[in-house]
Write a protein that binds this DNA or RNA. Structure first.
Lengths: 179, 179
DNA sequence: CATCGATGCGTACACTCGTACACATGGGAT
DNA sequence: ATCCCATGTGTACGAGTGTACGCATCGATG
């Protein structure tokens, strides 16, 4: 089942290139040709590994999700029953939104693309699930889903309107949802 | 200052056509040519009235915002100090998400496009403002902004993951933020 | 060793796009 | 009455797109 030929990691390199392209030029700048150029592979190679752009987006979004899941896991505080959950969440958001926003923008751009691309919906659901699951362990499933919704809403307000992120505000309102 | 010649409402017809195009084919299907065809005007006419597609999107999003603002105003219950605010908001969301979702999808697709198009950000901010303002009168500015964030987050979760809308759940968590 | 199929590669086609431009027209200002 | 210019129209160009297809190349299977 190992890769067949010269370039066993071709597929992975293409996904990485796609992520870089979306990060740099936006989802609108994603095409078979742009990823091919970025990954330094011929055009035919990208169309071979991913028949359609949707397929490539699914792979890219899934990989981005995994990246964020790792960040969450690394900051293990969501698991600590003694910690201030609202504060931890607000801190996590601050970490995402601070400095270089390429990562968050990429994540949300792919996430939001699910609005028009049903193929991405299951992966979008995974994103919600990945964040909701640890939260549910600290609270309950209903509260967890609401927290995810509020996190998304706050992040989007910052990203879309150009407002600056106010961690104290986030902590306050997240706390209200937790009850 | 009245319009000059044959077709005084040309510009408005183009905006309407753009909204229909985005509703039907998504933002990706929006081009000078598609709107021109939909509005039944020559290509040159659209490029004359809107030098760039961004300009057209701004006009379309602004008009969509006004439409929603009217819906909100028509359901005057947000203003009634005696009414259950969380219930009213949840009901409003139910109305949006019920049946034909073309309107909400259009609104959010244009709204979210602001992520990559700075030209749309002021208009996205207006959308937040239009919804937050009446809410702030019933509560306070901080709570109002949080409510908008939560409304957006819940709507997006429904639209993006294909989950069904649960009005009781929405009312419950909105109530917590108000509480 | 022979074969087969997965993988890689290059090219061509038909299409859509944004943009620019040259020209037509008639309403308002003078 | 005349002129100007905002508005309307048609066409062309170069760039970029998804897709399909034929051929090359080896690893694994038998």
């Amino acid at each position: 089942m190992a890769a067949r030929r010269y370039d066993p990691e071709r597929r992975q390199r293409i996904i990485d290139a796609a992520i870089r392209v979306v990060g740099a030029k936006g989802l609108a700048g994603l095409s078979h040709r742009t990823v091919a150029a970025e990954a330094d592979v011929p055009l035919g190679s990208t169309t071979y590994h991913f028949k359609t752009l949707d397929e490539l987006m699914v792979a890219a979004l899934r990989q981005a999700n995994e990246g964020f899941a790792k960040v969450i896991a690394a900051r293990g505080a969501l698991e600590d029953p003694g910690a201030d959950l609202a504060g931890e969440l607000a801190g996590l958001m601050g970490e995402w939104l601070a400095g270089d926003r390429t990562g968050v923008e990429l994540e949300y751009e792919l996430y939001l693309a699910a609005l028009r691309r049903p193929a991405l919906r299951p992966v979008a659901a995974e994103w919600v699930q990945d964040l909701a699951e640890p939260l549910a362990r600290r609270t309950d499933p209903v509260t967890a889903r609401a927290l995810v919704a509020l996190v998304d809403g706050i992040c989007l307000q910052v990203l879309l309107t150009g407002a600056s992120y106010d961690e104290g505000y986030a902590r306050e309102v997240l706390g209200r949802v937790i009850g």
